[in-house]
C-alpha cells in the first residue's frame, strides 16, 4: 500500500496547476523512492517529468510499486478543496481502484476526506539519457516567464542563442521582431535573482513559445529555472523544489 503525508498541500496544488494543461491523464508511479510521473502532451512535442522524493513526505510508505492512473483535471478539482496550508495524506491499497486524499488543517480542527476513482492508463515510458548539455542557463523563474510572455506577443516561435556574450531570446513575426539578451549576473545576497551561463559550445535552437509559456505555469514552485540546451536535442527546462523537481522537455523546431 501507499501512504504519503505532505506537510503543505500547496506543493501538490501548484504542481498540478503547472502540468494539467499539458497532460490530461497520467500514471503517478509510486515506489519506495517517491512518486514520479512522466507524460507527453497530446502532440508529443513536450514531455513532463515530475519527481516528489520520499524524503519530501513525512511519513512515506510504499510497500510495492504502484501506478496510479489519474485524470489530472479530476485531481485538480479535488485539490481545490484543500487549503494551501493543509496537511495532505495520499493513500492507496495494493492494486487500487481509488486514491484516498485527506486534508487536515494545521491545528487539526478540520479533516476533509475524498476518494478519487483511478483509471487504467497504458502509457509509453521514454528513456531519457543523462546528457551533458552544451549550455546551462540558470535565471530567475519570473524573468523567464516574462520573456516568454512578452515574445509570444510577437511570434509563435523563439530562437534561443547561447554564446559567450550571453543568452539571447529572439522572435520575429508579422508585426515586427523583438529580442531580450541576458548577461551573466551575480547577486550574492539573492542567488535566485542571479543569471548564470555555463557554456562548452555555442547553441542556437528554435522552440514553440506556446509550450514555453505553458511551462512557466511552474513559476510559483521555484525562484529559479534552469534551461539546458545542446544543438539538435530537446530543451530541458527544470524547476527544482524542496523534495523534488519538475522538468519539461521540448522538441526543437528544425530547419528542413
Amino acid at each position: 500500500m501507499l501512504e504519503a503525508r505532505l506537510a503543505q498541500a500547496a506543493v501538490l496544488k501548484k504542481t498540478l496547476d503547472a502540468i494539467k494543461e499539458l497532460v490530461t491523464d497520467a500514471n503517478f508511479d509510486c515506489s519506495d523512492g517517491g512518486i514520479s510521473l512522466q507524460a507527453m502532451d497530446n502532440s508529443h512535442v513536450a514531455l513532463v517529468s515530475l519527481l516528489l522524493r520520499a524524503d519530501g513526505f513525512e511519513p512515506y510508505r510504499c510497500d510495492r510499486n504502484l501506478a496510479l492512473g489519474i485524470n489530472l483535471n479530476s485531481l485538480s478539482k479535488v485539490l481545490r478543496s484543500a487549503q494551501n496550508e493543509d496537511i495532505i495524506t495520499l493513500k492507496a491499497a495494493d492494486d487500487p481502484d481509488n486514491l484516498s486524499l485527506t486534508f487536515e488543517s494545521q491545528n487539526q480542527d478540520r479533516i476533509s476526506e475524498y476518494e478519487m476513482k483511478l483509471m487504467d492508463i497504458d502509457q509509453e515510458h521514454l528513456g531519457i539519457p543523462e546528457t551533458a548539455y552544451a549550455a546551462v542557463i540558470t535565471m530567475p523563474a519570473a524573468e523567464f516567464q516574462r520573456i516568454c510572455r512578452d515574445l509570444s506577443g510577437i511570434s509563435e516561435s523563439v530562437t534561443i542563442d547561447a554564446s559567450k556574450d550571453g543568452v539571447k531570446f529572439a522572435s520575429a513575426g508579422d508585426i515586427g521582431n523583438g529580442s531580450v539578451t541576458l548577461k551573466q549576473t551575480h547577486n550574492p545576497e539573492e542567488p535566485a535573482l542571479s543569471t548564470s551561463i555555463e557554456l562548452s559550445e555555442s547553441v542556437t535552437l528554435t522552440f514553440s513559445l506556446k509550450y514555453l509559456v505553458n511551462f512557466t505555469k511552474a513559476t510559483p514552485l521555484a525562484g529559479a529555472v534552469t534551461l539546458q540546451m545542446s544543438n539538435d536535442v530537446p530543451l530541458l527546462v527544470e524547476y527544482k523544489m524542496e523534495g523534488g523537481y519538475l522538468r519539461y522537455y521540448l522538441a526543437p523546431k528544425i530547419q528542413d
Binding site: 502532440s43 508529443h44 512535442v45 515510458h125 528513456g127 531519457i128 522538441a251 528544425i254
Partner: peptide, 14 residues
C-alpha cells in the same frame, strides 16, 4: 522551412 519535431524522435521507448 522550419518544422516542429517530436520528443519521440529523440528518446526511445523504455
Amino acid at each position: 522551412n522550419v518544422s516542429q519535431s517530436t520528443i519521440e524522435e529523440f528518446y526511445k521507448e523504455h
